[in-house]
Design a protein around this nucleic acid. Structure first.
Length: 574
DNA sequence: GCCGTTTTCGGCCCGACTGTTTTCAGTCG
């Protein structure tokens, strides 16, 4: 049973947390956290690298010690240091550390002074009154802590699509405040992450007090948890946390950069500034006390000898090196998309007719649209059987004959059965322009069986695209386990593609996997999976995930113009 | 624990807010 990168990263994360609780050198803690991130986002399995003798120390933040630990974890499945440290810390203390307002000092203090080593005990103690050494219940920090104790165990991250309307409302409100020059949502939202932990709003203004007041009076706020001259934090009725930062206009670019993150990207850039005798903060780039840059992000990067880096890439995944070398990708954008190959109609589980969906695709500016309704199979209600799909083929041919300005492609989203065979026979698939194969049942197979299943599906010459390959539903269903490299190898041989499904809870393949696909020369099909006429708007959100993966137009199947797309589809049939 | 145009030791990003040990440590982002 191979040890996956995620398992190695988890060990490093836990080591960092335990070391923090034990008040070890904070830089040692940071080294483990950084290593966890490096391992987690590494596109290939490190157990393979070890098997082939490749050097682990080439990875950023991995030195001799951590390389040894990776080898230890991969070969033994465990880590001696972890076993030792776990004995020195109570499990409940790790949970305590995750609570807002509690850091390593206070968690240690709780155990030493009060014998409190679990969240449950802390909650009980707080119910009786104040606990010396931690903020009291009538303070904002104390309230936040109690709140977190009440809600612990619930999923914390919010889908970007859920946060987006709130972000819009707040932006409108802040734009209306006196003195406001610019307002942006920064943070992971701006980086295009599929989920956000909170919303970070940045305001440039000459009248900070007015902006803070406008923010704190927002009617969806349940509680203001912090309020200063240039910052405020609040929790909305929905539970989403929102943070406001206010800066003078001259600092806007530096602040936007700083509050966009990611944290590791920022730290790298600050070190670059230091090496040049400069100091970078949210107020600007300084040489001594003299401001060198700060009004725009472009000038901050430029003063550090770099081109502007798109927010989606700012994860310290090599973008600073690419920027320095002048090799940043030209990220795929909405204007590059020529069509959409994953569209449902009321023939299966969509809500709009074939004609309505084609019209909507045309209004969305697409040059072609691929209809891909579900096949009929257990677990898929309202799917098409062979006869119904044959009728739809005829209907599309008829509609094509009287449609101008957009091409309609005939497809299907056919179920992959547990053994890897498809829910429709080849004879009907042969009459289509393309077929998307998808898993909708048997999610929990072992990685070995799941891989074999998906490889068999990809072996079918009519399968063009593997839909939402990971099968994840964010906060609801974990990703399928399989050997991605094996799938990519087979897809590359056949010219088949993997999908990046744009449904907000899917965004599947995830960015890390998309990046790997591009490296292996496998194109990604960005599919809206639209079920109604408004569904094409999802393409925009899906593209953020593609951009986070560093994809360019040439990496995306449906960025091909129609003629080249048809050639690519035909080529998959060998 | 990592790392090196300040290199094998001595650094490691920077500032705001909170609560309170009222001059700053702890926490957070």
């Amino acid at each position: 049973m191979p040890v996956h990168n995620e398992a190695i990263a988890s060990v490093f994360d836990e080591l960092a947390t335990l070391l923090e609780l034990l008040q070890e050198n904070p830089y040692r803690v940071r080294a483990y956290r950084r290593a966890a991130q490096t391992v987690r986002s590494h596109p290939t399995e490190l157990h393979d690298a070890i098997a082939t003798g490749a050097g682990l120390q080439a990875l950023p933040g991995i030195g001799t010690d951590l390389a040894d630990k990776i080898r230890e974890i991969v070969t033994t499945g465990s880590c001696a240091l972890l076993t030792t440290l776990r004995r020195r810390v109570r499990p409940g203390q790790v949970e305590l550390l995750a609570l807002p307002g509690l850091g390593p000092k206070r968690v240690r203090d709780l155990a030493a002074r009060h014998g409190i080593t679990t969240p449950a005990r802390l909650a009980a103690a707080l119910a009786k009154g104040r606990v010396a050494g931690i903020p009291a219940a009538d303070t904002v920090t104390g309230q936040r802590l109690l709140d977190a104790l009440r809600h612990r165990g619930e999923p914390r991250r919010t889908l970007r699509a859920v946060a987006a309307p709130v972000a819009d409302a707040l932006l409108r409100r802040l734009r209306g405040a006196a003195g406001v020059r610019q307002v942006t949502v920064a943070g992971s939202f701006r980086r295009g992450c599929s989920t956000v932990g909170d919303l970070d709003l940045l305001v440039a203004t000459d009248l900070p007090a007015a902006a803070v007041a406008a923010f704190c009076d927002f009617d969806e706020i349940a509680r203001v948890t912090a309020r200063g001259r240039t910052r405020a934090s609040a929790v909305l009725g929905t539970g989403l946390q929102v943070d406001l930062r206010v800066v003078p206009p001259a600092s806007y670019g530096a602040a936007l950069h700083y509050f966009t993150g990611s944290k590791t990207h920022n730290i790298r850039l600050r070190r670059r500034a230091q090496q040049r005798g400069l100091k970078l903060s949210e107020y600007g780039l300084f040489r001594g006390k003299a401001a060198v840059a700060g009004a725009t992000e472009e000038e901050v990067y430029a003063a550090l000898g770099l081109p502007w880096i798109p927010p989606e890439l700012r994860e310290d995944h090599g973008e600073l090196e690419s920027a320095a070398a002048g090799t940043l990708p030209v990220l795929v954008s909405r204007a590059d998309l020529q069509g959409d190959l994953h569209v449902h109609t009321s023939a299966s589980d969509g809500t709009a007719s074939l004609a309505e969906m084609v019209a909507a695709a045309k209004s969305a500016g697409l040059a072609y649209v691929g209809i891909a309704d579900h096949s009929r199979h257990v677990g898929i209600t309202h799917g098409l059987d062979v006869a119904a799909l044959a009728r739809q083929i005829d209907a599309i041919d008829a509609l094509s004959g009287r449609t101008r300005g957009i091409a309609i492609l005939k497809g299907v989203e056919v179920d992959i059965l547990e053994d890897g065979s498809l829910a429709l026979p080849d004879a009907i698939l042969a009459r289509l322009d393309f077929a998307i194969a998808a898993v909708h049942t048997s999610f929990a197979l072992s990685a070995r069986r799941q891989t074999a299943r998906l490889l068999r599906a990809l072996d079918n010459r009519y399968v063009t695209i593997l839909a939402h390959p990971r099968g994840r539903l964010i906060n609801e269903r974990p990703p399928l386990q399989f050997d991605l490299d094996a799938l990519l190898g087979r897809a590359a041989e056949r010219g088949a593609c993997l999908e990046l499904n744009c449904q907000p809870a899917r965004l599947d393949l995830p960015d890390v996997d998309c990046r790997r696909a591009a490296e292996r020369g496998v194109r990604i099909a960005v599919g809206s999976d639209a079920h109604d006429a408004g569904g094409f708007a999802l393409l925009e959100a899906g593209l953020l995930e593609a951009r986070r993966a560093g994809l360019e137009a040439r990496d995306v199947l449906n960025a091909l113009p129609l003629r080249k797309l048809r050639a690519a589809l035909a080529a998959t049939r060998g």
